[in-house]
Amino acid sequence: MDLITREKIKQVKRGDQSAFEDIVSFYQNKIYQHCYRMLGNRHEAEDIGQETFIRAYVNIHSFDDKRKFSTWLYRIATNLTIDRIRKRKPDYYLDAEIRGTDGLDMYSQLATDHRLPEEEVQGMELQDYINQQISGLPPKYRSVIILRYLEEFSLQEISDILDIPLGTVKTRIHRGREALRKKLRHV
C-alpha cells in the first residue's frame, strides 16, 4: 500500500473525515465499477458502492495497517453485493429496468434465453452482451472473474478478499472461465 494511503488511514483512524474524502476520491471508480459488475445495474451499484465506503469509515479501526487497504475495501464491497443479490426478490429483474438506467431490457433478457447466442448478440452491442454474460454468472464465479480480469488482483489477493482458500479460488475461476467460454465462443 502506498505511503499516502497509509497516512490518510492514520488520519481517518483519528477521526479526520477530510482525510477520508481523499480515500473516497481515489477508490470511488474502482469500487463503483466492482459493484456495477457484481450487481448488473447502476442504481444498486451506487447504493452498495456508497454503503461500502460508509462501512469502511465506521469500521476503520478494525482495519489492520499491515494488510492491503484495497483488499479490505473490496472485501466489504463484495460481501455487500452478495448480500444484496441474496435479498433480491424473485421479481427483481422485472423491476430493475422499469427504474432502469442501464439500457438493458430485462424482459428481453428473459426472453432471449430461448434464442441462440448469435441472434442475441446481433441485437445488441458486443460490450453490453459481454457485460450481461458476466452479470449472469452465479455470484461465486462472478466475483472471482471480476476480481481477476477486471480488477487484476492476484489469486492470492482474491483469496484474501473473499476469505476463502486459494484452492477454492482456483476451482471457481476455472468454472467461471468455462461458463463464460460457452457464452462467448460464438461472438
Binding site: 463503483y32 465499477q33 451506487e46 458476466i134 472473474i145
Partner: peptide, 20 residues
C-alpha cells in the same frame, strides 16, 4: 481478452459528495 476489454465504468459525479 473479451472480458478484459470491456469498457471502464466511472462513478456518478455526485458519488463522493453523497458518501460524505
Amino acid at each position: 481478452k473479451l472480458v478484459q476489454n470491456t469498457e471502464q465504468i466511472t462513478a456518478p459525479a455526485d458519488f463522493k459528495k453523497s458518501v460524505m
